[in-house]
Amino acid sequence: MDTDQLIRTLAADNAQRALPVGIILLLALMAATPVSTAMLLLGLGIRPDIMVAMRNPFFDLKFVVTMALAISAATVSLHLSRPEASLHGWGWLLVAPIVVVAGGIASEMMLPQRLPMLARLVGHNSMVCMSAIPVLSLPILAAAMIGLRHGAPARPALAGAIAGLLSAGAAATLYASHCTDDSPLFVATWYTIATGMVAGLGALIGQRVLRY
């Protein structure tokens, strides 16, 4: 087939319109979130003292951190789904959750604590945290990949890693309602390790499936 013939064919196919990447990403995430939520409720459940915990600002702060991660990563990954896009000028968005957690650590330091710093950092169930966040993130990661595959990311591994951050942020938001460790030190350590694992997985998958 010569190129003129191909061009004629493409013009004939012009009526086929694809939906914007943002819509597909949103629909996929909306389909996946209930799956992860069900996994949390059936597998781990919500912590029994949640009504009391909600009055603890450090419990609430966990949700601010994880949602800041999910939202900033979603924004950046949507930007990166365009062929000419680069991280330049957008990467600073990903600093938002770090700023929040750093602020949390600083304010906790200023308050009197019953437990020593190391005990707060190690917490009660770091192993559950490190395995639950990656597992809960899997349906959301798959959805993010489906959404971004619809785009044309210039750097598939990078876009995949950011998709990993997005799904880890969403999964951590869910997990935070089960987790009884509220110290920002715990969040900064174990949530970050779990998020890093998901981001690495996302980069590996992205490299393969996000090429266009």
Binding site: R82, A152, A154
Partner: peptide, 29 residues
């Protein structure tokens, strides 16, 4: 290669922002 580029341009044309310049998008693909 030209044909591969044209196919990609065609199938990914929804990633072009109507308000953005066309050339950088095209050459990125």
């Amino acid at each position: 290669i030209v044909q591969e580029i044209l196919l990609a341009v065609h199938l990914k044309r929804h990633t072009w922002d109507v308000n953005a310049p066309f050339a950088p998008w095209l050459f990125a693909i």
